[in-house]
Design a protein around this nucleic acid. Sequence first.
RNA 1: GGGGAGUUAGUUCAGCUGGUUAGAACGCCGGCCUGUCACGUCGGAGGUCAGGGGUUCAAGUCCCCUACUCCUCGCCA
Length: 652
Amino acid sequence: MATEFISKVKRTHSCGALRSSDIGKQIVLFGWVQNRRDHGGLIFIDLRDREGLTQIVFDPGISKDAHGKAELLRSEWVIGIRGEVRSRGMQWSKKDNKEVSGTNTKLATGEIEVYVSEVEVFNRAETPPFEISEHVTTSEEKRLEHRFLDLRRPHLQKTLITRSKMNAATRAYFHTHGFLELETPFMGRYTPGGARNFLVPSRLNAGKFYALAESPQLYKQLFMVAGFDRYFQIVKCFRDEDLRLDRQPEFTQIDVEMSFVSQEDIFETIEGLLKALWKEVHGLDIPTPFPRMNFDESMAKYGNDKPDLRFGMPHVVLNDLIAKFGAEGGVGPMWETLQAKGLIKAMVVSPVTAGQHDPTVVKAKEEAFRLANPNPNAKVPPPPHELSRKDIDETEAWVKGMGAGGLARAKIAENGDWTQAPLFKTAKPELKQAIIEATGAKPGDLILFQFGSTAKVHTIMANLRVYLAKKLWLIPEYGSGGKWNFLWVVNPPLFEYDEETKTWAAAHHAFTRPMDECLKYLEPETFDPEKVYCYRYDVVLNGFEIGGGSIRLHDPVVQAKVFRALGISDEDARSKFGFLLDALKFGAPPHGGIALGMDRLAFLITGTESLRDVIPFPKTQKGTDLMTGAPGEVDERQLKELYVKSTPPAKP
RNA sequence: GGGGAGUUAGUUCAGCUGGUUAGAACGCCGGCCUGUCACGUCGGAGGUCAGGGGUUCAAGUCCCCUACUCCUCGCCA
């Protein structure tokens, strides 16, 4: 009986542990049947647990009983074995008709195998819906439906083990730096603004709702007011917004708040944490401090606040230049953009020389080609040198999908002529020359242009830059390519103008501290909200925002001025942020903090394809769980108890 | 809310201009095999072509709708 075996016999090793130094030992392994190779006489099985694979051998000469049982074993059965560790050494191969090394260099345990004297089947398994194997791909849909099987794959086990280590390293780091790990409620009061909240109806309070915390923001500030001085938490947050490759509706943050600190103190703390994490996971010493870049510079050169600095191709803003030439410049649409207070940007795409391609992409493409073309004489296509006509057409279709009018471009010929550039047919030669100078384009280069509303041009150009870098093999489709380009993007404007409501709104949140030198623009006589920059910062890695935070506004006097600029009345402020305003009145220390996206960090540090690969039980893009079927319907009685009516639209 | 890609055997895919009984690989089942390691070999089973509607003598293939999955813009302070 299985229970007898497990109660009498203890596992001595994991399936990844045995080495040649263990030869001769009697051992016990428990695990799953990965693969069975039955030679009629000998039967080989790869036994798998989370630590790895061990080859076990059933020899009728050792145990007829065990060998007989082994004939029945199938994939994913759970077994325990007792046996002797033996060297694989030199073995006679009938296939090769000579002695060959029996060592399997692909396995960590490849030097040994275990001759089984006793086997116990703990559980049989039905044939799984897909193979639990690294070299068999399965659609994500099928994998999510059977997540408990997918989680058996070494790839997912590895990323989740890494994540566990990151959690441990994070806690160790903060505990040794004097931080307290304090908890905050998930169920709180709904406050308007920011991300959509998930709502939880209250049974005990008819008609009232909790909101699931989108972050512990307010609570952690209260910890500072309370004098805890240094707080951190690895905490779940909930946002009812549309999902993306790097976004899940429930996700984990490393949440941090500190008292009596400047922006630089926070940077130092977080750089130390990231250093510790990269050391833990990759054994790497990432260089600190990270570079700093002003928000405005980031927007101008890269079109967003999370530039990927593993490659160049910065944007060049042409507004001033077009303005200088005026309507006579000869590029009507750009001049019109200028009149409409829009944005005109250019980006130079230079031919890529051999050494510039990302070596991991070159290697991966070569391997993929070899796999598709088994003929060893087949010539591997070279990495792309420049964009082909087809590439450019594809790119144009792609930017149009993002709302671009088109993809204006100019190819600079060897003699300096502009080709493929209908937009510039009527352009003054001096304007073309000025654009060449501004962009630094050389003969052979391609200049791409976007113009139109500022936000749209930034978005399109930012995405275009990354899209082309992947197309030209400058960066891999996913993963770091071994490059870790950390960056702080700092000091954005505090306010942004909302075109719809024609009012100024807080770009981050209303409790971000304006930079000291900008305070005068909050005064009535020199009021100019556009010029108010603030102590806010994002930490960026390879084009992903991995965290963001700010120095908080703890001074009620300045707070009042910010509210006035935002057009928030005392009454509004009171109803929205009442308890925080109260708290700030009773001796709030200067404080600030940051929150890092743990899922994104794990996603980037492991170089996986998707955020879903570092979350054990992730949701699909529509926020559903294909395994449990959540969200599901509930019955009328439950709704009634909660004083809630459900009114989904009728299905057509 | 918008744009794009997709849905064919248990799994991953092929299926041309609409035309015979919808194929392959892996997996699965059975036989043989004492050195394999993605074992080999011989044989076998396995399909509501996502669902619905339409065009047609004839639909996996063309058209429309719906559902689901992925990517993306908006959105996510």
